[in-house]
Design a protein around this nucleic acid. Structure first.
Lengths: 153, 153
DNA sequence: CATGGATCAGGAAAATTTCCTAAAATAAAG
DNA sequence: CTTTATTTTAGGAAATTTTCCTGATCCATG
């Protein structure tokens, strides 16, 4: 079922990551193939979960989401129950774009997109009232130097 | 030119973010409209730069990129020339998925996707040999709790 | 060199996009 | 409040694209 990703697959993934609106014929032409193998391979990679989603990327600032914070979290609680609750709180909040559990003395990092500093504070107050957190450091982004979903394939 | 985003636009953006492979008719039906306004509005939002890209999201682990690091960087250099060089180094490296210049005592944060810890070290050595950096802390992600490109609209 | 399995190119039908036209809705002016 | 101008909408038709079928080609192996 989970067939190996070969060089042709990688070329197709590179094209799709770059522009998913291209037609099969256009992709086929670029990689030197025809639409049938391209279509079959894309279908297989979707089934295999290599391609997880087809989406559009939006300009956050154009939508009024002008502030981006990285939040470093330390906690004293490490019980399964607390962790479960914390995890669900993060999943439920649309302003949390990323959340990772870390190795080391910082336990979690979040990436949070909000309209402004006030909106961040509202988010922060809501979060700490929901789950007990030992220590929080918020890093405010001044400039998005780079932001891509394109994985090197 | 840069028309205001109204409620219908937001519904369309929500649908597209959720699944950009849907047909216009399907989106139109869901938001209670017809394909023409949906098509016109998508066209306008692309022209206005609200929709920046149509892409596919891939499973990093399925592609062998099993390690994710957040890198906190302090630097003593703050000259324009150094910053320019650093910026271009980051842009050129495909393993750097995000890079932000920060407010506060940490100057930059990076999100880096690589195959494993060894690959991260290779990246790190290459970076510090290119540009002078005062202090680096790497945070290793143990678990991706959440990762989305969907902005709350 | 033959043979089985897989992959490929091309084509046809179905679906979708693209854009035109005219009607409807909304806003502006008298 | 009515009339006019502007914008937005629904529906339809042509062009493009997707979807999948068929037969040919390629490749590994005996």
């Amino acid at each position: 079922m989970a067939s190996r990703i070969d060089e042709t697959d990688r070329k197709i993934l590179a094209e799709l990551q770059n522009d998913a609106a291209q037609s099969l014929d256009e992709i086929a032409r670029k990689i030197g193939s025809s639409k049938t193998p391209v279509w079959n391979r894309i279908k297989r990679m979707k089934e295999d979960g290599v391609i997880t989603r087809q989406t559009v990327l939006l300009d956050a600032e154009a939508l009024g989401l002008e502030a981006c914070f990285f939040v470093l979290i330390r906690t004293s609680e490490h019980e399964a129950e607390w962790q479960e609750k914390f995890l669900h709180a993060l999943q439920a909040r649309p302003e949390v774009l990323e959340a990772h559990r870390l190795a080391g003395d910082i336990d979690y990092i979040l990436k949070v997109r909000v309209a402004n500093a006030r909106a961040y504070d509202t988010f922060y107050q809501a979060l700490i009232s929901e789950v007990r957190i030992f220590n929080v450091t918020a890093l405010l982004s001044m400039e998005e130097i780079k932001s891509t979903t394109i994985l090197p394939v």
